[in-house]
Design a binder for these strands. Sequence first.
DNA 1: ATCGGCTCGCGCAA
DNA 2: TGCGCGAAGCCGAT
Length: 442
Amino acid sequence: MRAGGRYVLYWAQMNRRVESNHALAYAVEVANSLKLPVLFYEGLTCSYPHANDRFHTFLLEGVPGTARCLQRRGMGYVFHLRRCRTDPNDAFYRLAADAAAVVTDDYPVFIAHDHNRSVPNKLAIPYYAVDSSCIVPMGHFTKQEYAAYTIRPKIRKVLDECLQPVKIPHVRYRFTDVLPALHTPVTKSNITGLAAACQIDHSIPPSTEYRGGHDEAKRRLRYFLENNLRRYAKLNREPSAHATSGLSPYLHFGHISSLEVALAVREYAAEHKLIADEFLEQLIVRRELAFNFARFSPSLDSLDALPNWAQRTLAEHAGDRRDPAYTREQFEHAATHDALWNATQTELLTRGVIHGYYRMYWGKKILEWSATPEEALATMIYLHDRYALDGRDPNTYTNILWCFGLHDRPWSERKIFGKTRYMNLEGMKRKTDVDAYVQEIV
DNA sequence: ATCGGCTCGCGCAA
DNA sequence: TGCGCGAAGCCGAT
């Protein structure tokens, strides 16, 4: 290792948290063995796709808590905000120049995946990418899984040994340097101003419901445990009951780890004699199936990623007449004939998420009412990438492609859908309180 | 209210 | 090679 390094640099690309972070724990371990402190680096640019006030605000809201937590543990912190696209984008490399080693997040897709392939070649120091996104490390699975039933037994087998709290070692060498000039202090009161000063899309406001940060995630987790875990199995498909955890934005930004959630749920369930299987199925099996898909599928945003039967059947029905047929703009503005569908889209526009069950309906109807399956897929991805706090995530892409048959099975043939699963408004009315939801949203 | 059929293919048992 | 079964389905028959 390089002798001249002044610290070990942890680069928070996806997991923007201190607690329950395997990669940060590893950074401390490396630093302790090198007799060096740890510097935690987190950047925010204005050049990511669809950069807007909603995403910026959520992410900025996590920064003060991260700063507090790091200070308590004796680690340094640089949060670098790049306000304009013309600002230099070299904060990471400037910090890496004084580092003895870099530790960052292993991640299967998007920019972090690209970084983890290209950045090490530009550095003369060790570069470690550590998986702290999943409970069973992604590397445990050697192939693309076909569906939940194929990955479930493999997860079960190793789950107990993986469900262990992350132990961040005691920091032996505290970070005492003066913070580099690259740091942007963030407080509760300057977040709005910081977002406003950035060269991003200001037409999409912060979520009306979700404030970012690990503390807020923990508050929601606590609320879920005390009020909804016992109702979850029965009511997780009743959107008006608000029985779900609402943690998906926090999981997406890495403000909380699925491991921390799973451990808390398990403990609470044991203490109160509750069955948490349904929730843990979502949190672990479904989520890690999505990461497995992201890791092994050659593409995430194309119908090519679908199983053969689904590609075949959608192609056979590509020429079916669509009636009604809507454009992306009509979908975006929640301007269809269907009040429930419009409400789901309105929830996305205002809150930045759609309830998991209605999101299936949302997607199935976009498939039904778009000129082609390809156009439907592009519309869904666009709307999630732009508005969803849990968008741009392996889960999002997997959930969207599920609407086209991914990880699902064939059903009776019908128009447009072919053999992919069909959903309709009657079913939603039969099984959920559509009116209550529509009234709440509109 | 409840049930079987729809339809493909994975992975395990044999 | 055969066989059971699978994220949230619908639909018609009973």
